[in-house]
Design a protein around this nucleic acid. Structure first.
Lengths: 188, 188
DNA sequence: CCATTCACTCAACACGTGTTGACCCAACCA
DNA sequence: TGGTTGGGTCAACACGTGTTGAGTGAATGG
């Protein structure tokens, strides 16, 4: 059922976007393997063949459905860095962008997704590490901070751990803050 | 190629075990969806139909391939608890039992695996929480400790983050210790 | 020694998948 | 108005999957 009176190019872009959105939603919810081209097509109200025609392959559709993680804001001061990292918790626990969910969901079972996540986290670690000039082993400390956030995110967003349900993000942040301070700079 | 002179019952148990071990290895490496009955059978040197005959279904084989996480040792003292938690890092970073790898690998894409992991972690959280009588929000604190360990494990074991490669477990433990102390009991 | 049990294999079914090529018809353009 | 483009559908192929039922032959036990 085509929407009324629109130019051919407009409709083309609209359905392509509809497909991409359905794909993101399904990939984020069920992962790469369990998301079928047919399911995406149905969700978008379109024939499976059209999905192929537009994106070439399921793998390519997956790639397009992923969007880069939001870059971490730079910080040179350690205290400010911790605050900024904790500020991202709101995002991580509430409305993580769907393109990010797509990556995280499949990272343990799809090597391509794992690569993408690894590269992204490595980059984030470098970025955090660069803001820890005073401490020793800055890269390792940064990695522990980032993986901690990853673990909390997984426990909350994907596993739905009881102890994390209905806990406001700033409560978690306030408990995590002293831990991150201990991690990023030792008490001397 | 039957191994020589053994009783029928012995050989039966032996091949059943061989199948189970192959299954564990493959499930741990590739996850539920990408592990095929045929691949398990081939790895065990056996016909696919035999796998079905012994385990009934792929799902049942998966269930059998999972073994319970090693229970957390109890501790009533906070400092001792932190030490014990960090002592598990050796295990988590080195030779995590394959049955555990199976669960973790599939937890993001297979709901049954997610259930199992959630239940296990909930139990661990309760256990840790019980050892934190003094602090407020003990359950939440426990959950943050456990999810931190989860995140570090994933970053190291499954993603292979560069910053965690070739870092001895006790180095990580020594950096994590002050963070866990800050998390389990506030500086008063 | 013979009948039976049973570990194990073979061949196939039913189904869902990604992917493809032929086709249709409304929008466009001269 | 008529020919062409191109968004979109239809039907099918080739393949891999979990699963099944009939069959085979050696170990068993009386």
């Amino acid at each position: 059922m085509p929407s009324p009176h629109r130019s051919r190019a407009d409709r083309r872009r609209a359905t392509e976007l509809r497909i991409l959105n359905s794909a993101r939603e399904l990939f984020a919810e069920k992962g790469f393997d369990r998301t079928t081209i047919r399911a995406v097509a149905t969700a978008a109200g379109v024939d499976p063949a059209l999905v192929m025609q537009y994106f070439g392959s399921k793998r390519e559709l997956f790639t397009q459905a992923v969007q880069a993680f939001p870059a971490l804001p730079a910080a040179t001061d350690t205290d400010a860095l911790v605050d900024q990292l904790l500020a991202t918790l709101d995002l991580k626990l509430g409305g993580l962008p769907e393109g990010t969910l797509v990556m995280l969901r499949s990272m343990l079972t799809d090597p391509a997704a794992a690569d993408h996540v690894r590269e992204t986290l490595d980059r984030q670690i470098d970025s955090v590490s660069a803001a820890l000039p005073a401490a020793e082993d800055p890269e390792l400390r940064a990695a522990l901070v980032i993986t901690t956030l990853l673990g909390v995110t997984i426990g909350h967003q994907f596993l739905g751990l009881a102890a994390l349900r209905d806990v406001p993000a700033d409560r978690i942040a306030s408990l995590l803050r002293p831990a991150f301070k201990a991690l990023t700079g030792p008490p001397d």
